[in-house]
Design a protein around this nucleic acid. Structure first.
Lengths: 260, 260
DNA sequence: AACGTTTGGTCAACTTTATTTACCAATTTA
DNA sequence: TAAATTGGTAAATAAAGTTGACCAAACGTT
C-alpha cells in the first residue's frame, strides 16, 4: 500500500465560494434575519476585501439558492426562509452547516418539551388510542428489525403528540420542523448509521414519552421529551467524533500495511 | 451601527497554504511519523490535484518550518520532531491545530496519573517539603490574586511531582512536555482567559494532588491527577465554545443597535 | 417634476496566481 | 555503468481575481 493513499485532493475553493460560505453562516446562525438588507455591493466588497465582480458572483449563487433576493437600484435582501416554499433552501443550508444542526436541536428540545407537556394535559381518548397504536407498531418494528418502519413510527409518534397538544400554532410550526427532519437532516444516512446501533434505547424512550402522555403526567412527559432530544444530540455528536476517528485510523492502517 | 460590521474579511488563502495545512494535519495527528518518506513530488502533486510548482512552494514552507527535510534525488522526509531542538516547530504546530491540543491533553492525562502514582509511592522527605512549600505559595498567590505567581506555582507543582516519581525517563519526557506547556500552548492568552475565573477550583485540585502525594496515597494521587487534567480539558472546551457564542452574540448586538 | 445620490448591472484592461511543459542534476538500482 | 527515479529550475500558457469606468433603476430632496 502506497503512502500516497492518505493524501486527499486539495479543495480548489474559489474566492466567491468563501464569500458564499460566510454569508450563509450568517443566515444559518440567525444573525441575518429575513428581510434584512445587506450592505451595498461596493461597501460589502470593501469590508470583505474582495472585488465587486467576485462579490456579485457570490450573491448570484446565494440568489440561485433562494437565500437572498436583489432588486435593481434598491439593494440585496435576505429572503424569507419560513414557509414551506423555502424549505429546500433551509434544508440545504442545514446540511452544509453542522453547527446549525445543533442549534436546530436546541430549539426543538424546547418545542418538544412544551408539546409533550400540553399533550399530557389535553390528549383526548382518540389521541391516546393513536399513541398506543404507534407504540405497538414501534415495538413490532424494533423486534423485527424493520428500520424503515421504525423510523416511520418514530415520526408518527412525535406528530401524534404535537397533534394532541391541541395548539394550532404549535402544530403548524412543528409541521415545518418535521418536514426538515423527514427530508434529510435528521434522518440522513450518517445520522442513521449513528443511531441504528441504539435502536432499543430509542424505542424505550419513545415508550416512556408515549406512556407519560397517555397517563397525563405532565412533568414526566416534559422530561421524557427533553431526555429524548438530549440523547439524540449526544448520539449524533458521538457519531461525528467516531467517524472522524475511524477516518484517521484508516489512514494509519494504510501506512502500517506498507511496513509489513 | 451599520450592518457592515458583522462581515469579516475573506481569508485569501493561497493554494500552497491549503497544501501546507493538509500535510501539517497529517504530521500533527501522528499519521505521518518522523522519518517517513513522502510520495515523490510528481505523485503527490497528482493525488493532491495540484501543480508541481505549487506543491514545491508548500514543501518549501514546511521545510522552512522544520517539519520536513528534502534531499536531492532521494525524496522528502518528515523531520524528527522529538528532542528539544525541534520544540519550536512542534509548538507552532500545536498552536495551529486545536484538535491536536486535545490529543496532547489525552496523552498528558496518562503521564500525569502515572507520575502522581509513582510520586506517592516514592517521594522522599525532601520531595514532600518541596511540595508543601509549593502548595503554600500557590495558596498565597491565589489569595493575593497574583496570576503570574499562581501559574508559576502550578508549573512548579507538576515538575516537583514528576521529580518525586524518581523515574529518569519520565522526568525527561515530561520536561519536553512542560516546555511546550510553559511556552504558550497551555498558558496562552485564550486559555488563561478561560481558566482564571476558576482559579479557586484549580488551587484546590493542586492541593488535593499535592496532599495525596505527601500522604503516600497512590490511588488518590492518580485520581487527583486525572481529575485535574479532565477539568482543564473541560474548561478549555467550554472556553472555546463560550468565545464562539460571544462572537455571535456580539454580531447580533451590532445589528439590533441599528433597529433602535 | 427635476436633480443628485445611491443602488445594482455590465464590461474591458490589467494583475496576480496557478498550470503546463521542458530540461537539468543528484541518487538509487539493475 | 546505464537506466530509472527523484528533486531543482525556468519559461510559456492559462485561469482567477482586481481595477476602473460607465449604464440603468430606485429613492430622497428641492
Amino acid at each position: 500500500m502506497n503512502t500516497t493513499a492518505i493524501f486527499e485532493p486539495i479543495g480548489h475553493e474559489s474566492l466567491s465560494d468563501a464569500v458564499v460560505a460566510q454569508i450563509e453562516d450568517l443566515i444559518a446562525s440567525g444573525i441575518l434575519k429575513q428581510g434584512r438588507k445587506l450592505p451595498s455591493e461596493r461597501d460589502l466588497a470593501e469590508t470583505l476585501r474582495v472585488s465587486r465582480p467576485k462579490l456579485r458572483e457570490a450573491l448570484a449563487v446565494l440568489e440561485e439558492r433562494g437565500l437572498v433576493t436583489t432588486q435593481h437600484g434598491e439593494g440585496t435582501f435576505v429572503a424569507a426562509l419560513t414557509g414551506s416554499a423555502m424549505l429546500p433552501a433551509l434544508l440545504a443550508l442545514y446540511e452544509r452547516h453542522e453547527p446549525a444542526f445543533f442549534d436546530y436541536l436546541e430549539y426543538r428540545r424546547e418545542q418538544e418539551g412544551f408539546a409533550a407537556k400540553l399533550a399530557a394535559r389535553r390528549a383526548t381518548k382518540a389521541d391516546k388510542e393513536r399513541i398506543t397504536n404507534i407504540l405497538a407498531e414501534d415495538e413490532r418494528a424494533w423486534r423485527e428489525k424493520d428500520a424503515l418502519a421504525s423510523r416511520e413510527a418514530d415520526f408518527a409518534l412525535h406528530a401524534a403528540i404535537v397533534d394532541a397538544s391541541q395548539n394550532a400554532t404549535l402544530i403548524h410550526m412543528m409541521a415545518s420542523i418535521y418536514e426538515l427532519t423527514r427530508q434529510g437532516v435528521f434522518y440522513n444516512r450518517d445520522f442513521l448509521k449513528t443511531i441504528d446501533g441504539t435502536g432499543k434505547l430509542l424505542m424505550e424512550q419513545h415508550r416512556e414519552l408515549g406512556m407519560a402522555v397517555i397517563t397525563g403526567d405532565e412533568a414526566r412527559a416534559e422530561k421524557a421529551a427533553y431526555d429524548h432530544i438530549d440523547f439524540v444530540e449526544e448520539s449524533f455528536k458521538l457519531g461525528i467524533e467516531r467517524r472522524r476517528r475511524e477516518a484517521m485510523a484508516e489512514k494509519r492502517r494504510l501506512l502500517s500495511d506498507s511496513k509489513l
